[in-house]
Write a protein that binds this DNA or RNA. Structure first.
Lengths: 234, 234
DNA sequence: TCTCCTCGAATTGCATACAAAATGGCGAGA
DNA sequence: TCTCGCCATTTTGTATGCAATTCGAGGAGA
């Protein structure tokens, strides 16, 4: 009974999905980690059937890579995919900004302001600050009431943390909190173009800070591919 | 053996997914149709497990609605969702156009021209012409080499046919073929802004043509039999 | 006749069983 | 010692079985 209420909505498969997603976004499961169906099911107290369903969902969201007959692992997007992803994100978030500009209700403004304060407060701790930064963008998307837009922004933001985990510089705050505040100000003032430009700059600065890969754990094949081409191999 | 090759790539679950998707996009299964797991599995010669997986995928793509304990049905988006969807689509397809403008290779131009010719030829038959019109847009997206962009445009185009099935006027060609040709011309000429404007107008004119619903529920097994053969299932 | 209740058939939710494929280690041969 | 190939183990792919839920038909009572 108590159990039934505690799954947070939907079936237990959704619960598994949420658990894994959260773990991935918190980087408790880092890109490339294997995700064996039975270990997960065993640990979570569900059968492989449900784990499988969750993994399929995650793979559709681009958080998990599902290699036939070889199991699932946390997705390891390439740097180029990362750049493209931020391009796509920019296109969608521009729509978010255009939709919201000058139309925020007092209540929405309150929510956003509170969120920015929370970001400010958590600035020191790495993991929570990354998550909060992402949530600011999904919050904005949410306010458009455009379901497809919301879904895609959510997905892209989620995948962005994977990208940053792989290629982001360790010591730069990914989203400057002050930029969020500025953006909010422009939105309230209804300065659509300036807000859009700010968002563009905001995302652009993230991609620009995504240059060198975090060392060590990169895939051998990926590293070699550049050299292979130069030598005319494979 | 022959069977294994004929599933088109991926496992049998993917095959089921393709069958259903195709059937939905062809409007052989119209919005609101029930999708019982065992009828489908029985007809396609697979177990409910695989059908379930396919349905989960389709629900993530927004093509089917998955109501807990009450089964799946082909999605029936509201008119407002439809409008929002086209808004989102516009944002993404603008990015497509901007990416491609002035950068099409000779080969790509050939492919697109050929496609437009095919559209022209199929103009009379309703179902194929709808599919071809959508494929023009997914073809363009494909050429950007931006995987997330490709995925989202594909999804959005697919869902657009649902919208048109529900609210589109029966006798208007959804995408004027001539507009596709014009767009291609602008892209070749590298006139980015004009191309973007044309795309905007193109999609806008579709949303403006939003009206009456259609009807007709047919037997699932009957409808699926044609598609099953194409995928080498049962 | 209308309403509400109950029961049975149909359908989904989930676990488990078994088959097929991959992975890793060990030993034979060079 | 190194390499190759074979077998045991592990993990995925798929079907099936059982419990839980929903839906509808029919019947009792007002």
């Amino acid at each position: 009974m108590a159990n039934k209420e505690s799954d947070g909505g939907g079936g237990r498969a959704q619960a598994v999905h949420r658990v894994l997603k959260r773990a991935i976004l918190d980087q408790a499961l880092s890109p490339g980690s294997k995700l064996p169906e039975d270990s997960i099911g065993e640990r979570l107290g569900v059968s492989r059937t449900l784990v499988r369903e969750a993994l399929v969902r995650l793979s559709q969201e681009g958080l998990v890579e599902l290699r036939p007959n070889k199991g699932a692992m946390v997705a390891r997007p390439t740097l180029e995919e990362g750049r493209n992803l931020f391009l796509t994100r920019m296109a969608l978030e521009r729509l978010v900004v255009e939709t919201l500009s000058g139309k925020l209700t007092r209540e929405q403004i309150g929510v956003l302001s509170a969120h920015i304060s929370a970001e400010e407060a958590a600035k020191k701790e790495r993991a929570p600050s990354i998550r909060l930064a992402g949530e600011f963008h999904t919050l904005l998307a949410q306010m458009t009431n455009n379901t497809s837009l919301i879904r895609y922004v959510n997905e892209l933001v989620a995948r962005s943390s994977l990208i940053l985990a792989l290629y982001g510089r360790p010591h730069s705050s990914e989203c400057a909190v002050s930029e969020h505040q500025e953006l909010l100000d422009k939105l309230i003032a209804g300065k659509t173009d300036e807000a859009a430009a700010l968002m563009a700059h905001h995302l652009d600065s993230v991609t620009t800070r995504a240059l060198l890969p975090a060392d060590g754990d990169r895939n051998i094949k990926e590293v070699l591919s550049a050299y292979a081409v130069a030598e005319g191999l494979a």
